[in-house]
Simulated scan of single mutants.
Amino acid sequence: MAQSEQVQKRSIGFYSADPSKHTPLEDTQGIFISAMTVALGLYFLNQVGLLTSGTAGVAFLLHYAFDLPFGLLFFLVNLPFYYLSFKRLGLGFSLKTFVAILVVSVITELERRFLVIEYLDPFWAALLGGILIGYGLLGMYRHRASLGGIGILAIYLQDRFKIPAGLVQLGFDLCVMVAAFFVVSPVTVLWSLVSAVVLNLLLTINHRSDRYIVVR
């Protein structure tokens, strides 16, 4: 492509020539597609009654315990973390995270109208759910967004009290899984752990600060 054409496209906001930055159009499509991917992973888990890690796991627990809409619960559970996000990670990151959570919450409620699954093995749901949520999160990180939640609190506690963020996340997830024993069966907790391990391994292997720069 000629340099003049590149300049023209750049001038009307199609893409950014700087690989570490994105135009509003790039951010919009990237966050939307990532939210669709996460929502599909959550839908698979929900179809067989599984949980996952983080605030989504808390939303699943409340959903199974009180039969309330998961999308609404997921949105509400994340509300307390927006202030921390704004203080620690800035307005741009917080706004995109808010939009990402809102889109995921809405799509998870609409999913059942467009997709009906007659049979889904729990192991396959755990595997696919973890992979899809992981890839969706990677996409959000690429566009400097997230699904909020405990990750923001973990970063804050690490900076303020020198508690490793990984330990905070692990401790929170263990609490979610222990609480799950009071709501779902032990087998369901086991498959949920499989999904959480797949998700966290995918992020650990693929998330690198030189590839996915969440904060600048």
Results as ranks from 00 to 15, higher is better:
residue 106 V to G: 00
residue 133 I to K: 08
residue 105 S to H: 02
residue 115 L to C: 09
residue 126 A to L: 05
residue 104 V to D: 04
residue 138 L to G: 04
residue 5 E to W: 01
residue 28 T to S: 14
residue 136 G to E: 04
residue 203 L to C: 00
residue 202 L to K: 01
residue 136 G to R: 06
residue 61 L to H: 05
residue 166 G to T: 05
residue 71 G to N: 03
residue 205 I to G: 09
residue 93 F to V: 02
residue 147 L to N: 10
residue 36 M to C: 15
residue 169 Q to I: 15
residue 116 V to M: 13
residue 101 I to K: 04
residue 11 S to C: 01
residue 44 F to Q: 11
residue 38 V to Y: 11
residue 197 V to R: 00
residue 152 I to C: 03
residue 132 L to F: 06
residue 6 Q to R: 12
residue 181 F to C: 07
residue 143 H to W: 04
residue 4 S to T: 05
residue 188 T to W: 07
residue 34 S to T: 00
residue 90 G to A: 07
residue 39 A to L: 04
residue 14 F to W: 14
residue 23 T to D: 03
residue 56 A to S: 15
residue 130 G to T: 04
residue 10 R to N: 13
residue 2 A to P: 07
residue 13 G to S: 03
residue 14 F to C: 07
residue 36 M to P: 01
residue 216 R to W: 09
residue 66 F to H: 15
residue 182 F to C: 08
residue 48 V to M: 01
residue 82 Y to C: 08
residue 116 V to K: 01
residue 35 A to P: 06
residue 59 A to P: 05
residue 4 S to Q: 14
residue 11 S to G: 12
residue 160 R to D: 12
residue 128 L to E: 00
residue 130 G to D: 07
residue 61 L to F: 07
residue 210 D to G: 05
residue 18 D to H: 01
residue 174 L to R: 02
residue 42 L to N: 14
residue 202 L to M: 06
residue 188 T to V: 11
residue 102 L to S: 15
residue 189 V to F: 11
residue 117 I to E: 11
residue 141 Y to I: 09
residue 214 V to T: 08
residue 59 A to C: 04
residue 75 F to D: 10
residue 4 S to V: 07
residue 58 V to Y: 03
residue 68 L to R: 07
residue 13 G to R: 03
residue 76 L to S: 14
residue 116 V to G: 10
residue 117 I to D: 08
